[in-house]
Design a protein around this nucleic acid. Structure first.
Lengths: 209, 209
DNA sequence: GTGTTCATACCACGAACGGGGTATTGAAAA
DNA sequence: TTTTCAATACCCCGTTCGTGGTATGAACAC
C-alpha cells in the first residue's frame, strides 16, 4: 500500500486525554494518519473544509454545537462526508438522531482500539457499521412513538418538580392541557406515573438532568 | 533531576482509549514514568503490590470493584498510598466518598493534561488537591443530611414508578412507613415532590438510572 | 378535500400523594 | 446510663394526579 493511500482521519473531541489516545491509536496504524484535530463543533467544520478527510471521528457532545449539528453542517456542504460518531453511551435517542442525520457508524469510547480502527477502515470503504449492542438498543424502541417537542418541554418542567398547575402557568396553557400532555408522555414511554417517566426519559437520553 | 527520581505512576482505567491518552501524557513528561496499567479493580491491587508506585491514577468506575473499593483495599495494605481519582463527572456523592476514603485528589477526565500532570506532582509531594469546580460542588451540600440506606432503597423503588402501596409490599413494611421515608427523602433533598427527588438524586449521584 | 397529527380545552371521579401529628422499638453514640 | 437517631406504624385531611370521554382549530400530507 502506497503512502498516498493512507486513510486521512480528522478527530473531533473536547477531551484532551481522549484526543491524545485517539491520536496515538490512529498514528500507530500503518494505513492511517491523523491529519487534524478539533475540539469544538465550529472548529470541526473549519478543519473539515481545510482537509476534507476520508473519515471523521466526531464526539457527540461538544462545547458549542452538538456533534450532530456539526455533522449536519458538514454534510450539507460535503454530502459524501464519512462521519463516525464516537461517544460514551448516551441513551438511544441521540444514537437514532445521529444515524438519521447520516452518521456512517456509531462507536462507544470504551471499545477496544482494534475495533475502532477496524470500523474506520470499513467506513472509508463505504460501509456502515453499528455495533450489535447499540443496534439492539435501537431495535428495542423502533416502533415507539417519539415525544413531540411540546411534550419534551412539559417533561422537563415535570422533572423540575412542578405541579400541573405550575406548568400550565409557565407555558401559558390550561392545566387540563398539561394533563393531556403528561398522559401522552406516560403512554409513549410506558411509564406508570410521572416519576417513572422521568427515569425512563433520562435513560433514553430524551432529557438530561 | 536524576533518572531514579522520576515519579512512578500506575494508571487504572478500563477505557483503552483513555489509558492510551494517559500513557502518552505521562511518558511525555521528563519527570514521570508510567510503570504499569490496570483495567480492573483486582488487577489494580495486584499491580500496586508489584510496583508500589509513587502515585496512582484510578478511574471511579471499573468492571469489577468500584474505584473506591479498590482504593480502600490498597490503602488497607499500604496506608500511605497516594491515589488520585480521575473520572468523568459523577455527582458529588461519589466524590465525597472518595475523599473520605483517602483519595489525595479528584480530577475530571476533561481537564487539560497540563493540570493533570501538575496535580500528580503535587500529590507526590504529599499535598492534596481538589479542583475549585469540584470543591464548590462539595461545599454546596456540606451541611446536608445524607440519605440513609433504607431511604435510598425506597428512592430506587420510587424511581421505578412504584406507588407507596407497592413499595410497602416489596419491602414488607406498611404504606405509612413508606410515606415517612418518602417525606424524609424529599426534605433532605429539598424536593417539592417525589419526581423532583429522583431528578436531584440522579444529579447528585445518589442513584443511577 | 379528506384524513391525520398536534396542541389546545373542559368535565367528572376515584386513587394516590403530601403534610401534620404522635408513638414504639432497637441500636448506636455520648 | 441517657440520649439520639433510624425504622417502624397509625390517623386525619386537603391537594394533586391519573383516567375516561369529548371537542375544536391549525398544519400538513395524500
Amino acid at each position: 500500500m502506497g503512502e498516498q493511500e493512507k486513510i486521512r482521519v480528522l478527530s473531533v473531541d473536547d477531551h484532551p486525554l481522549l484526543s491524545e489516545g485517539i491520536a496515538t491509536i490512529i498514528n500507530s496504524q500503518p494505513d492511517m494518519e491523523l491529519i487534524s484535530q478539533a475540539s469544538s463543533g465550529t472548529e470541526a467544520i473549519q478543519r473539515y473544509r481545510e482537509h476534507q478527510p476520508d473519515v471523521t471521528l466526531m464526539d457527540l457532545r461538544l462545547p458549542d454545537l452538538s456533534g450532530i449539528d456539526a455533522m449536519i453542517a458538514i454534510r450539507t456542504e460535503f454530502p459524501e462526508a464519512r462521519i463516525i460518531m464516537l461517544t460514551t453511551f448516551e441513551g438511544d435517542v441521540e444514537i437514532h438522531r445521529a444515524l438519521q442525520a447520516g452518521a456512517r457508524a456509531y462507536l462507544l469510547k470504551n471499545m477496544p482500539p482494534s475495533e475502532i480502527v477496524d470500523v474506520i477502515r470499513q467506513v472509508r470503504a463505504g460501509k456502515k457499521r453499528v455495533p450489535p449492542e447499540i443496534a439492539a438498543q435501537l431495535a428495542e424502541h423502533m416502533g415507539d412513538d417519539e415525544l413531540t417537542a411540546r411534550e419534551v418541554e412539559v417533561l422537563r418542567k415535570v422533572a423540575g418538580g412542578n405541579r400541573n398547575r405550575d406548568i400550565a402557568d409557565l407555558l401559558f396553557i390550561s392545566e387540563e392541557t398539561v394533563k393531556v400532555h403528561v398522559k401522552h408522555i406516560m403512554d409513549k414511554l410506558g411509564a406508570k406515573d410521572r416519576t417513572q417517566a422521568i427515569a425512563i426519559a433520562v435513560r433514553r437520553g430524551i432529557i438530561e438532568l
